[in-house]
Each structure stands twice: as C-alpha cells, then as structure tokens.
C-alpha cells in the first residue's frame, strides 16, 4: 500500500510540474490543483498503513484506528487550497480579460511590455 501511494505521489508531482510549465492558463491552473492534492497525499501517507484499522471516528473504542492527526492537517490544507484555487481562477480570468490572451508566453513578451 505504501509503495503504491509513493508511486502515485511521484506521478502526481510529475504531472503537476509538467502542467505548471505549460503555456495555457487552464493547464497551469490544473497543474496547481494537482500539486496541492499531491502535497496533501504526502501528509495522508504519513499516517502509516491503514490495513486493519478503522476510520478515526470513535464508535468502537477497542478497534485500532488510523492516526487522525494527518487527516486533520490535510482537512486544513484542503480548505486553504480551496481558497487559493479560487484566487488563482480569478487571477487568471482577470489576466485573460486584461491581456486578451490565455497564453502565458505571450503575457511576458518583452516587445510588448517594454
């Protein structure tokens, strides 16, 4: 389970980095969304092997439960990521309205900006 998670995290970071380096705004946006989730996955993976453990909801005090702290942490991180993603959507939309382009390379064209 841990190996698969590690591979998944590696793939997600790779995909995110690739997308962030693209020119299209939409791809950049998706890249950052995947990046946030990949980072959340890293934290989630730190709670160890979940085999044979129950979710951290105290229904039966006898059965072992997975470490609840990483889950609490990523809940916070998800909320923050939600806010930042909303900001990024607006920023890219505003850039599109101002510059009439969705291509990040055109945005920083030296000839235009001077």
């Amino acid at each position: 389970m841990q190996l698969e998670t590690a591979l998944l995290i590696g793939v997600m970071f790779t995909v995110a980095t690739y997308l962030v380096l693209q020119r299209s705004f939409v791809k950049i946006l998706f890249g950052f969304l995947i990046l946030t989730n990949a980072a959340n996955f890293v934290v989630l993976a730190m709670s160890g092997r979940p085999d044979g453990k129950v979710a951290p909801v105290v229904l039966d005090p006898q059965s072992p439960m997975v470490d609840p702290l990483p889950q609490a942490l990523i809940l916070t991180a998800i909320v923050i990521g939600f806010g930042v993603a909303a900001y990024l959507v607006f920023l890219l939309y505003r850039l599109f309205l101002d510059q009439k382009t969705t291509n990040a390379a055109e945005l920083y064209d030296e000839k235009e900006s001077g």
Binding site: V20, F32, L35, V43, L73, L95, Y108
Partner: peptide, 25 residues
C-alpha cells in the same frame, strides 16, 4: 502580470511546505 509569478512560486512553496510538514510528522 507581475503578480502572477509571485502567486505561482508561493503556491509551489506552500505545496512543498505541506510535504515538509508530513515528513516532519
């Protein structure tokens, strides 16, 4: 236009920071 690189690199930094938190934990 110049706000975008600031936001982008800090988003990247935040993602790394969460990963570092996980590693530290």
């Amino acid at each position: 236009k110049h706000a975008f690189p600031y936001v982008a690199i800090n988003l990247f930094g935040s993602a790394l920071f969460i990963s570092a938190c996980g590693l530290a934990y």
